[in-house]
Design a binder for these strands. Structure first.
Lengths: 129, 129
DNA sequence: AATTGTACCATCCGTAGTAAGGGTACAGCA
DNA sequence: TGCTGTACCCTTACTACGGATGGTACAATT
């Protein structure tokens, strides 16, 4: 596990952590079942906040790249390699594009789309993110 | 045409103008083909900016509530009454709700949804709003 | 000449959301 | 006891966007 962080990079820190873990997995540097450094450990090594690493880990776990075993640490998910390729954000992007272009073709203002968007985001039950 | 504006109201000014024009039309106070006050005129009467009224008029015309006849002024659309009931924003809202709840059920973070949204909005050709 | 809708330039303020950090605390394992 | 992940609290930039305003200018109509 060698993770390097570029403070001045374009990507936010938690994104950099996610990308590098994914990369380590797809490279084989991190095999299925192998343990990852603890949140506090990695945060300390990278000299960043616990929450930033925790956020990266949380999202990695949602994407089934890693697995948190309660109080026994965090490990690489058995199906990590396959799940590295499937990018959930890509799916979200294409779906949103379809919806939004439909709106635009109906001459809906970008402003109106944005208003409706924030409206829906705020007045709907989020599943607890 | 009596339009009253509440500066301290919750709705933005251009929305108030739109609502009141729609109301005047559906009430019958403003019949099909009748002329509306000019943009500058109404802006002056309400003591608001030209652009604010122009924005309201522009959206009202898109919704086929009113009709701008070039340099001859603005008039109520022939089918204004029917088009008063069909709210384009309602359709946008329900469509967006469907899409977003789908994302949330897939455990996509609200943050990720927002990022993808702004991404799509900025990296797609808007039809010129 | 005056008025029409419209287009373009620009600014200001308020709000909202993100990213990141700091702190404190808890329950379960070794 | 020490470590694990996790869940709260609150705070600080930074950014993007919306709403509104101001000014200037244009072509076409009356």
């Amino acid at each position: 596990m060698e993770i390097h962080i570029d403070i001045d990079g374009n990507d936010p820190l938690f994104t950099q952590v996610m990308k590098q873990v994914k990369h380590a997995v797809s490279c084989g540097a991190l095999g299925a079942g192998e343990p990852l450094p603890s949140i506090r450990q990695l945060a300390n090594d990278l000299d960043i906040n616990n929450k930033t690493v925790a956020k990266a880990y949380r999202l990695l776990e949602r994407d089934n790249i890693i697995q948190t075993k309660g109080y026994r640490g965090t490990y690489v998910h058995p199906d990590a390699i396959e799940n590295c390729t499937t990018d959930i954000n890509a799916w979200v992007n294409t779906e949103l594009t379809k919806t939004i272009t439909a709106f635009r073709n109906a001459d809906v203002t970008d402003s109106e789309i944005r208003i409706a968007f924030t409206d829906v985001m705020n007045n709907t039950n989020s599943k607890g993110n």
